[in-house]
Amino acid sequence: MHFIPEDLDEYVMTHSEDEPELLQQLSRETYQKILQPRMLSGHYQGRLLSMISKLVNPKNILEIGTYTGYSALCLAEGMQKNGELDTIDINEELFDFQRKYFDKSEYGHQIFQHVGNALEIIPTLDKVYDLVFIDADKENYSNYFEAIVNKLNAGGIILSDNVLWSGKVLETKFKKDDTSTPALIEYNKLLKEDHRVETVLLPIRDGLTISRKL
């Protein structure tokens, strides 16, 4: 979804950092072989994730929602040399695809995959994190926040993707089977009102929130 005219959006991409070759390969193969390739972070957002990670310079990163591994590799670019990235996804069929690209990168030995329910896995991770990226099932965003906020260092960053949900967060009536929109509305409200974090919502692509733990 574009919140600015497409020609201006193209200008923005053209004048941002180039997409690394490995990520170009990952993106191509995702579009060729994997269902719902629009779930991929993609060139522009990937460079944004990379830049934020480099500014934070995290030792430990947690990602909720791996998909094909694109965003994990972007986040890993800012990780400390002795750092670790834990990434969780419920779809075990993507495990080998992710691992192939992780191992092609220089960060492969620092990236640890976890398959299953993130709300069950997070309590088993004996780490404190500096950077968290939430990009999984929208219905559980608030639950993910509660699960990870006490595992986040003071000054640590939570990035939350798709928080504008194609503009649906402005709606007041929802389809019966739409559980994602009201959940995201509630999540955005939570981030605004929770005194443990300070938050800025960026109208980038489908919406990206940056929350800093106080």
Rank of each mutant, 00 (worst) to 15 (best):
E6Q: 13
D7C: 07
E10V: 11
M13Y: 12
T14E: 15
E17M: 08
D18E: 10
D18C: 04
E19H: 08
L23F: 03
R28N: 12
E29P: 00
Q32D: 10
K33I: 07
I34V: 12
I34Q: 03
I34T: 06
L35T: 15
L35F: 07
Q36E: 12
R38F: 02
M39H: 04
L40W: 06
G42K: 00
Q45H: 08
G46S: 01
R47T: 09
L49R: 08
S50A: 14
M51I: 09
V56G: 12
K59C: 01
N60I: 10
I61A: 10
L62E: 02
I64N: 09
G65S: 03
G69Y: 00
G69N: 02
G69P: 00
A72I: 04
A72G: 08
L73C: 12
M79Q: 14
G83C: 05
E84C: 14
L85I: 05
D86M: 07
I88D: 06
D89F: 05
E93R: 11
E93M: 10
E93D: 15
L94D: 08
F95N: 14
D96R: 06
Q98Y: 07
K100N: 11
K100H: 11
K100G: 03
D103K: 13
H109E: 15
Q110E: 13
I111N: 01
V115H: 07
N117Q: 00
A118S: 11
T124W: 00
L125C: 12
L125R: 14
D126L: 01
D126N: 14
D126M: 01
D126E: 10
V128W: 02
V128F: 05
V132G: 08
A136M: 01
N140D: 02
Y141P: 05
S142A: 11
Y144L: 11
Y144I: 13
E146D: 15
A147Q: 12
N150R: 08
K151I: 06
G155P: 00
G156F: 03
L159K: 04
S160Q: 01
S160M: 00
N162F: 02
N162D: 12
L164M: 05
W165D: 10
L170I: 11
E171V: 00
T172P: 06
T172F: 06
T172M: 05
F174I: 00
D177E: 15
D177C: 07
D178P: 02
D178Y: 02
A183Y: 02
N188T: 09
K189C: 09
K192F: 08
L202Y: 11
P203Y: 13
L208Y: 13
I210W: 02
R212N: 03
L214P: 01
